[in-house]
Design a protein around this nucleic acid. Sequence first.
DNA 1: CTGTTGTATTTATTAGTATAAATATAATGA
DNA 2: TCATTATATTTATACTAATAAATACAACAG
Lengths: 287, 287
Amino acid sequence: MTQAPVSKTVSKTVSTASPAVKRRPKLAELISDDIKRWIAVESLGQGDRLPNEKALMELYGSAKGTVREALKILEVEGLITLKTGPKGGAVINQPGMEPASRMLRNFLHFQQLDGKQVYQLRKLLEVELAASVVGTLTETDLQQMEANMAACACCGGEEDHRHQRFLELEFHQLLAKACPNPLLAFMCQFLNDMLRDLVVIKKAYVPERKQFDYANQDYHRQLVEAYRMEDSLRVRHIMAEHMADAESHMSALEAEMAAQMLISGDLLHTYHHRSKLHDLPSANAAP
Amino acid sequence: MTQAPVSKTVSKTVSTASPAVKRRPKLAELISDDIKRWIAVESLGQGDRLPNEKALMELYGSAKGTVREALKILEVEGLITLKTGPKGGAVINQPGMEPASRMLRNFLHFQQLDGKQVYQLRKLLEVELAASVVGTLTETDLQQMEANMAACACCGGEEDHRHQRFLELEFHQLLAKACPNPLLAFMCQFLNDMLRDLVVIKKAYVPERKQFDYANQDYHRQLVEAYRMEDSLRVRHIMAEHMADAESHMSALEAEMAAQMLISGDLLHTYHHRSKLHDLPSANAAP
DNA sequence: CTGTTGTATTTATTAGTATAAATATAATGA
DNA sequence: TCATTATATTTATACTAATAAATACAACAG
């Protein structure tokens, strides 16, 4: 009815604005960008609701599918969640680290990244992070860390060494969660997640290095001790040693990572599922 | 015809696989995950083609819209690009840093991040990066850096100080591009991009501090000098000083960032466009 | 008051159709 | 022979309509 010219206006405005080089922006992208701008300008947050699909349809003069695609973009970016039913629809969601983490893994999947490079960063960032939480750790935090150490020490016998590594990394995640610098926290958590998934994937990862486990536990013990007396310098020193030690124990298995980066977190449990695409008669063709 | 049971099979398999807590995964997500798995397992890259929409429709026994949504997800994640025409369709694309960068900004938009925290990381990472490219810089790289310095020195007079900052950051981008560690390179480029957009947004950003510009130019000059003689320690020292100096000159405007994080890069030029959503009679409601 | 059932609302998915864009190929002209 | 133009084909893009699924809320029975 009256919405057709509206659609025309939008697409024309932007197609002239982006002068030459790139492709014509798709309608759904324009809409999602517009909504994003709206979120930013109105500074919406957690729980605020977008108009429902029908309203957006007539607002932008687009069809349902187009609006859905726009919303899908925002959903993939973690900015909204879509629910069905009344009180459903698109609600603003302040994204956690997962979307960013997932994208970073997508990026790294096609790069060559080895364990040495991971530890090049970990040696810097974990130390900085460790120092940055001195004085900000609550008693609850410390207790969680101690609980983690207890779990580590308890099942340290003939149990699965992979579980040890899990707990070891969980300790560092606790630290990261307490970090006041969100960027630093993100980077450390990302590195920990990568190492954790590496432990999952490489099932051969059971090199019976008990001494390594014991050393880690000792480092953690010393760290908590230093945290309790809020000795920043000591924390730095211990963590630096801890990371250097971990790097030196880095197995050859960790040397090549970034191969299975795409299959992250949630997808790991279905890793062995056959892809439907395998049944294709002839699909790919590389010139 | 025969594809209806296929669809049923997929949804049933996974709905039982994810036991309790989360919502039923949507069909489009399952498909996109499956394609992702396919990409990883077959280790496809750059230019390999996915089957066209029709083929995917009958392969997964889903409707066009669903397949389109699945492809949309992969497109947002930067893993494929969709083109029309013959030889068009979905082609694998190894994503650059942009998608990850965008998501990270989405995340940070809702956190509180200030300039101090940015420099907490920059002081570590830029130094490490600077040192890591010693010996790997090509003559071309060095010439580009010198060209950048020349541009910096030339327009240094009464010109726009914002342009100075642009060039200054461009110098660091050159370094980042040469870094062999993709993660370190990403993080440094991300920090630079954030600072760059900050310069764009804050139009009031013209504090006539010529001394700062001159100091930066001198640091850069010294860096290139040290790079030419491949003096790793000297590079570290200069960059550390450079960053400390930059932090000390950090303006109050940079203190609060992370407010306009959502409106990144490409969207900045349309920043003042009115959002269509503003015309809404009554949309949002926060309980 | 409590638990169940029904109903309304909203998204999710499907189906079909039509349009526009991009490319390859054939036809045409020089 | 070569370049240019026209045409046809392939493909995504967009729209319309209709059904299915899920949830909140109200009505109802115990």
